[in-house]
Write a protein that binds this DNA or RNA. Structure first.
Ligand SMILES: [Mn+2]
Ligand SMILES: [Mn+2]
Ligand SMILES: [Zn+2]
Ligand SMILES: [Zn+2]
Lengths: 141, 141
DNA sequence: AATAAAAAGCAACATTGTTGCAATTTAATA
DNA sequence: TATTAAATTGCAACAATGTTGCTTTTTATT
């Protein structure tokens, strides 16, 4: 999985290349997990205000660059989108989100498709999030 | 679906039959939706303190009477458990939770089983919550 | 260098949720 | 019925996450 350079992505999406935006994007790209604002705040507290981080995440999400997941604790987390699937106007991140009860990590299990769910005809589906709790590979003893 | 009387349930679980506990339980039984503390607070603000409601919900959940769902907004909601499935020591509420984007209601689609998800062997699963967003039967135009 | 737009900072606030402790109420017992 | 222990509640204080309005700073363009 080749990563496009963060600065190039920011360019393409019409964002300005500020230090914090570059760092946040590179971090989310490399970490390979779904990160929360509080986590970013710990990492980058000298570089940016809390609110700035919230706004960066919101801006990235709006462009289809990252997607937002509510984790099992009700905290918003964000992870890279698959650029084949997501655009400014529509997200398609219908994969499993695994929440490890040991280390607290949340990861996208992109390879695990969520099976089609048949709803009663009177219901219509627009989005879906499958959170699974358990022990991740790192924490398996 | 016959409902056991609230007072009887409280008795059986070793709870005291206070007015607010009876009312809260009856409400959750009848409403047929997953309710949040803020909702209960609006309903019962003259009858009980905010904290009391949080504690009632936590107590009921611990006994396997109701189950806790994090909704798509990250707010905790609670709905009756199926007494065949849940006990003090173990919850089994692996059904779909439908979040209506129109009316905000969250309902348990108990009849819709969540298909088995095959995780990589290095992961172990302990719990699971499938939140679906869309338009519910009432809000369908 | 001047400019407009974007981004960031800061303060204030909202909402949801938790904890400690004192006061009250329930239910069991004498 | 009076006593009592335990359960329940109320209140105050706090924590965490998230939002909004407004000003200042920075970026990229002209
Ligand atoms: Mn994901
Ligand atoms: Mn449910
Ligand atoms: Zn783990
Ligand atoms: Zn609805």
């Amino acid at each position: 999985m080749k990563m496009k350079k963060a600065t190039q992505i920011l360019n393409e999406l019409g964002f300005r290349k500020t230090e914090i935006r570059i760092k946040v994007l590179e971090y989310i790209q490399k970490i390979g997990k779904a990160v929360s604002q509080p986590e970013l705040e710990k990492k980058f507290n000298t570089l940016a205000d809390r609110v700035t981080l919230y706004r960066i995440l919101a801006a990235f999400e709006e462009k289809g660059l990252i997607h937002k997941i509510m984790d099992v604790h009700g905290v918003a987390r964000y992870a890279m989108c698959n650029e084949k699937h997501c655009t400014e106007h529509e997200h398609h991140d219908e994969h499993v989100h695994f929440n490890c009860t040991e280390c607290g990590d949340v990861v996208c299990l992109d390879s695990i498709k969520v099976p089609d769910i048949k709803l009663p005809k009177s219901f219509s589906l627009s989005r879906l999030n499958l959170n699974i709790e358990g022990t991740c590979d790192n924490c398996q003893k």
